[in-house]
Design a protein around this nucleic acid. Structure first.
Lengths: 334, 334
DNA sequence: GCTTGACGATACAACGATGTAACAAGACTG
DNA sequence: CAGTCTTGTTACATCGTTGTATCGTCAAGC
């Protein structure tokens, strides 16, 4: 059905290999033959079969990028940036959704597609450190995004989550707030949430504020609906907070929505800080104060680590820390 | 480097084909050999090389899904649904971003990847009808999402855009609004925007309202920023509107944000209807009234059309129309 | 006892591309 | 003029997998 090199070669009256040489820009082909092959390619509409080429070359030209949910704008934005960075190295990105489920994250690392890709970039949520220990000698590069807490010997790209959470919390303290809640802890997981909680507590402690456990509300995942639910629980309890630090922007947007439904004014009655720096927060009412990681730097570092590990086999796993900024908007304006 | 069937066969003491037969669940393999092969697979951690398998089977196992921007939540949601529907047929989805650029849309249809995928699902924006005429006999199935205006003989999946725009506009008319603006026309393109504009105008005409050209604001693409810009232009003009129908939700959210900056109350001073039914609109302030296409139906119809065309070669291109609903929320509440 | 037939296993070719080695012809070297 | 180099081309093997054809073996059926 499809046009192959054999067809091109036949039409141009040369061997298959000579046709291949033209396609691949090999120098020593007679001008005459080169022209005829090119004409044949043109006329037949030949397109190389990438699968076959990759099989022969032992390189697939694919990377897997696995994120929890594409509907989380943070990951949607990140995917776009990773795809762009990957394209510069002629990689096509396969996006997978894990829903944060441990078994699906492991499937991405280990299973079927592993033979199909040159590397895997994974934003893990459900995985345990032990899960990586078994995979001691992965045959293709693996880069984890945002999970430094997994102590294993793997490539990491992340911001300093503890520091970022401190900065966010200090900002609320600096506004004079004293009952500062945190939404988004994930007890039992030991990933990003744990680090952000540590930063939050550290900032409270440093300011001499009590760490009231009633003000820490866990959520199973990070969505607007869960942010709203958590906020409602905080407002139903006695002695509600005057500020809340949400572990991501979707939670924050949900929290603001729930506060608004109860007639609270943000930021006058309740100041809100999010985390992720998604575009949506720049158009919400009120505009959202947030910790914005440098997503472009994350994407490029991830691609760079994959490439580096592919080029130098014995490469030691690396930790890359990228910068973040606190973007102050209406949701915490005095 | 990687473990192949050959290694498995050697370890199990059988031929490569027998090992292959075990992997593929062929019935007539001696229980003893089957067990030994399975053990070898286990011990060596064998994973089939999908590329090689597909090469042999003459099927790639990939679909291309090309959307303008992944950061548009409508497309992010749609991608997730298409991926799920595709997984049921063992397809892996390659997501491409076209930015709505004509040449990139054509590249998706024609170029390199064509040999790599079993089919293409494209959400076109920049393409002209003539672009498809040249590609009269595509060798792999092509499904267009949401562009019935491209008259060519291709598979389509879309809602009735004219009708939907009518419904949205009638809703605003029913609230007593008389100066109803439209944001998001794209003159020169003859796709979705044209259809929605037609529905908008039809509803105005049916209600005996004038169609003031000053109330139709085009935008080059669909983003929050452009929605805000368009709204500012409307508010700066003499005789501003009391309602606005935005051709997508991002435009609507931007428009609301701009109106708010000018001190307008939504919906009291300005009623706003969007289009897409994205999750973000359920948490915005005010919650957004919107036309919500049945995205799940779109995703499943698209996959179904690809499969059908692949199975029956001479299949005639089909038009599938999926339902939509008008979701009424705060942004148009009396 | 001889044909069927089901079962079990294998060698071989093929998918489409590219690396290797070999070869031929002409152009240099010494 | 033999020997090496450069250029140009090709046949062949190979990547990992699976379809086809083939060849056994053993049991059932007449």
């Amino acid at each position: 059905m499809a046009v192959t090199l054999k067809d091109v070669a036949a039409r141009a009256g040369v061997s298959v290999k000579t046709a291949s040489n033209v396609v691949n820009g090999y120098s020593f082909v007679a001008a005459d033959n080169r022209r005829r092959v090119q004409e044949a390619i043109e006329q037949l509409g030949y397109v190389p079969n990438i699968g076959a080429r990759n099989l022969r070359r032992g390189r697939t030209g694919f990377l897997t990028l696995a994120v929890p949910e594409l509907t989380n704008p943070y990951f949607a934005e990140l995917c776009g940036l990773v795809m762009t960075a990957a394209a510069r190295h002629d990689w096509t990105v396969l996006i997978e959704q894990t829903a944060g489920a441990r078994e699906r994250e492991l499937a991405v690392i280990n299973a079927a597609h592993r033979s199909l890709v040159d590397g895997v970039i994974l934003s893990p949520i459900g995985m345990h450190p032990a899960d990586l220990a078994t995979d001691s000698a992965p045959n293709s590069p693996l880069v984890l995004l945002g999970e430094r807490a997994l102590g294993a010997r793997v490539n990491h790209v992340a911001i300093d989550n503890v520091k970022a959470a401190e900065v966010a919390t200090e900002h609320l303290i600096g506004l004079g707030r004293r009952r500062i809640a945190a939404i988004g802890d994930q007890p039992g997981q030991n990933g990003t949430a744990m680090l952000r909680l540590a930063g939050y507590r550290g900032a409270l402690r440093a300011a001499g504020l009590p760490d009231d456990p009633a003000l820490t509300v866990p959520t199973p995942t990070y969505s607007r609906a869960e942010g709203a639910g958590a906020m409602r629980r905080l407002l139903d309890a006695p002695n509600p907070p005057d500020a809340v630090f949400c572990f991501n922007d979707l939670l924050a947007i949900g929290a603001i929505s729930a506060a608004r439904d109860r007639g609270l004014r943000v930021p006058a009655d309740l100041a809100v800080v999010g985390f992720d720096g998604i575009e949506e927060g720049n158009y919400s009412a009120p505009r959202l104060t947030t910790i914005a990681p440098d997503k472009l730097a994350i994407a490029e570092a991830a691609i760079d680590l994959v490439k580096r590990q592919l080029d130098h086999d014995g490469q030691q796993p690396q930790d890359v820390t990228v910068p973040f900024t606190l973007e102050i908007h209406e949701s915490t304006h005095r």
